[in-house]
């Protein structure tokens, strides 16, 4: 393709250009600060909605809103946490209104969902025989999804997305002490679930130490 002749648009570098330079700077900052978290946001949305197309909508809406209000993002704080919070609010406003019964777990849905989009990550567990390695991705996923929302949420934010307790406390609008105890109880519940799977398949869950 022909390069534009630089002399051609010299005279058009007027007000429009300086205005858009600001806008361009915002775009650049937005891309390095916010767009880099796209995958994490998409996964978070998937966990919340359990539906790839809803998740896409949610992420799109989140970025649209985030871009519009990017000036209110406090520079130097965790942008990922800020985006997660916007997404969560969007989710509540949009999906909870007409949602199914809260707390009801549809295992078939989880299973279908999981299989429908599972294409990444190869399973390295074959040769191993202990409890930890014999667990399948799907079982862990199912166990996590079956936890009450308040536990599932903090585990997701902490173990999968790596937020600090302070960030999580801010996101779930609860004190840090509550985050601590929810994580404690949530992990305990999860462990019981996983041991249930292991027993079902006759795997020894004793701690050989």
């Amino acid at each position: 393709m022909d390069k534009p002749d630089p002399t051609r648009h010299v005279k058009t570098r007027t007000k429009k250009e300086s205005l858009s330079r600001e806008e361009r700077q915002k775009q650049l900052e937005f891309q390095t600060e916010a767009v880099v978290h796209l995958n994490s946001l998409y996964n978070y949305a998937l966990h919340l909605t359990m539906n790839p197309s809803d998740a896409e909508d949610l992420v799109q809406e989140t970025y649209l809103k985030a871009y519009r209000f990017f000036n209110s993002f406090e520079r130097g704080t965790n942008c990922k946490a800020w985006l997660f919070k916007i997404l969560k609010n969007n989710y509540i406003n949009r999906f909870r209104k007409n949602s199914k019964e809260p707390g009801k777990v549809d295992y078939d849905l989880i299973k279908d969902f999981y299989h429908s989009i599972k294409d990444v990550q190869n399973d390295t567990s074959e040769a191993e025989s202990d409890y930890f390695h014999s667990l399948l991705h799907e079982e862990v996923y199912q166990a996590l999804q079956s936890l009450p929302e308040e536990f599932k949420e903090v585990i997701q934010l902490c173990d999968i997305d790596g937020f600090t307790y302070e960030e999580i406390a801010n996101m779930v609008e609860s004190p840090i002490g509550t985050v601590r105890s929810r994580l404690y109880r949530g992990r305990k519940l999860l462990r019981e679930q996983l041991e249930g799977y292991a027993k079902k398949y006759g795997i020894n869950t004793d701690n050989h130490q």
Binding site: E56, V59, I117, Q121, H137, V140, D159
Partner: peptide
């Protein structure tokens, strides 16, 4: 338990269209 979650929960790639 934390390790299991970290290692076993698959992170999906956002679709290219998105």
């Amino acid at each position: 338990t934390k390790m299991i979650i970290k290692e076993k929960i698959v992170q999906f790639k956002a679709p290219q269209t998105l």
